[in-house]
Design a binder for these strands. Structure first.
Lengths: 359, 359
DNA sequence: CCGCTTTAGTAACGCGCGTTACCATTATAC
DNA sequence: GTATAATGGTAACGCGCGTTACTAAAGCGG
């Protein structure tokens, strides 16, 4: 395996018959450098002829900037659910990065890893900033990094912090879902949360549910509320619990598709056919939502947009632009499919549901 | 946004009362350096006290190694299908990288990007090696990189090349699927390919289908074969075409879950209920396979394993170990669910299918 | 012609670290 | 006691590039 021969600035300089400084000035298009057009052209030609690429390490060392951002991806017990977001998020971040001339480092953090091992990326100057997805609230090294002025953006808001963040507007998303069910005539609408309400997103979706009911003059009834826990199983048991009520809800808003999928299964097993007897609306719009039967009506989370926003916000912070908004909230979009009863249940054709992912 | 103050080796040296050289020798645990235990300890203490992390750029420049590998992810028209592999693959690569002390750069290549823009990663010394997923056969810069001795690993084999690669054993995977159907008593087994057979994987899965039939002394009948094209729609139309036969197959092996999902839809619409009238086995085991009705029996592709193998193989090459195998083929595993008719159709509980993803 | 500014380009420094060559001081061998 | 080796450590170089300070030549007004 022969080692690659790399072309350096010095070689370009020799080829062009100028000094190395001149090469640097030309290739970086330094504004106030006095380089005559012919010289300039000679340098450019030489660089092209030799297929010159600057050495990233040298450039970073000299400039003090890595032009790299990193995505720190906290793996968690709810992984299947989180995996659904990764491709879109990463694509969004990467595209934003590329747009501004940055590279992207990916750093998963395993469940059993001690807190804050990723700080090496920051302190070791591998990256100019971090996007953290799935931050842990007990992560003190995170706050220390922020206190030191290291550029950070969170995906998924952490409570009580001034660290910039990017997330969907969970309250409005939940309201859209519930309003849709209200619009279909439902009055007894159950709720299964996506997770325990210690999670900020979970609490927010609950809030949205309550606000939508409130605005429709329906009193909030805690008997119709159950707690999900990221996975199918939690939805399965939660909805069965709901069905034991004397008056089970005619519709259920389930604040996570993964949980909803478990719930759908239980509903069908118990003879509560969806949507004819019980309408269901989920949240997240994971890929499987389109494929399950009945196809799941759900609140679409713009994963690409979240990635893009996180990347762009982070880069702005790195480059010292004072962003006007340090907490970005993106809008969701209701995707009407079959499970809510508003769409024709069996449109022939390969796709189910009126919505096709925009990418 | 206050700039971070970074700790350098020099500061550690001062704190410990030794020279910078000594610090470097101690922290890198240089074998033949003569450092007394007390001095050694003083340096370690000082480094810890100051929370010292070496500057990545400086280290790269001095050592000539980036200790970074990159995943080049070719986005393509079949994106939904490929996205299903990204989380596992990336996790596998990252874990392998971390195991060997490497970092991972992620670089998506958009559909409309000109060929070979990613070579900047290599030539600019951002990375010591590349994993390319979804390589294009007309990518001449790829071959040039390889000819220059730059470490490369392909995910998905390219024909006629000596570039190291990692993939599943498509032939055996297809054979497993078809053998399973044969074992259930089926004799007329149709095939819908995952893609046009110019794709190597597609041809291999077709080969596996043929070999399985051959070994069962069943003559290959081209009338039972249709071509898929990555997406649901292609499966939808392909299977409808199969159903126009006087004697439609009693079982269909569909070499892609995505294509199979479209086919399932068509079968159900046409009254060919699955699995009672037509058995179906897919390939890939995408997340949706578990959730569709009936749950799809399919050939599981170990995405994590592929990523791990690619990462490990690449790092071996980078570090000069001559790997004994430059083309790694991983085994698949048949996941029996409902669509083949071998599993009980309605086991109560939140999960469908006997298989739970191992992660 | 002189002094001043502008133009065109270069020499030299430093980024932080790995590494090699080198220098003192002791221990060891004879 | 002296030659030799081992021990403990340091000074200095170079990695490739960005950048600053400087020089030399040319333009230009008086």
């Amino acid at each position: 395996m022969r080692a690659c021969a790399y072309v350096t600035q010095r070689q370009v300089a020799e080829e062009a018959g100028v000094s190395r400084t001149t090469v640097s000035l030309v290739l970086n298009a330094v504004p106030d450098a006095h380089i005559s057009p012919p010289t300039r052209q000679r340098v450019l030609d030489a660089a092209r002829r030799l297929d010159y690429y600057p050495d990233a390490a040298a450039r970073r060392l000299a400039s003090g900037k890595t032009r790299t951002i990193a995505l720190v991806w906290h793996r968690a017990p709810d992984q299947t659910y989180r995996d659904a977001f990764l491709p879109g998020l990463l694509d969004g971040i990467s595209r934003a990065a590329r747009r501004y001339g940055y590279h992207v480092l990916f750093r998963p953090v395993a469940v059993d890893e001690p807190n804050g091992t990723y700080v090496e990326l920051a302190r070791g100057r591998h990256t100019d900033g971090l996007v953290l997805s799935g931050p842990r609230s007990d992560d003190d090294r995170l706050h220390r990094l922020h206190a030191q002025g290291f550029p950070l953006v969170l995906h998924g808001r952490l409570q009580d912090t001034e660290i910039p963040s990017v997330d969907v507007d969970n309250v409005r998303g939940a309201m859209t879902a519930v309003n849709h069910l209200l619009g279909l005539g439902h009055r007894r609408i159950g709720l299964i949360t996506n997770a325990p309400t210690v999670y900020a997103a979970s609490q927010q979706r609950l809030d949205g549910y309550r606000r939508a009911l409130e605005e429709a003059d329906i009193v909030y009834d805690e008997a119709l509320v159950r707690q999900g826990n990221f996975d199918e199983e939690s939805g399965y048991t939660a909805v069965i619990d709901l069905l034991t009520l004397k008056h089970p809800p005619t519709a259920v808003f389930i604040a996570s598709d993964m949980v909803a999928i478990g719930a759908l299964r239980a509903l069908q097993e118990q003879g509560f056919s969806v949507p004819s007897r019980t309408a269901v609306v989920g949240f997240d719009d994971i890929t499987a939502a389109r494929f399950i039967t009945p196809a799941l009506t759900t609140v679409h989370v713009p994963t690409f947009g979240l990635g893009w926003s996180a990347g762009e916000l982070l880069i702005r912070i790195i480059e010292g632009d004072q962003p006007h908004q340090i907490h970005v909230e993106l809008d969701t979009e209701l995707v009407v499919r079959e499970s809510c009863g508003a769409a024709p249940p069996h449109r022939p054709g390969p796709l189910r549901g009126c919505y096709v992912n925009e990418r």
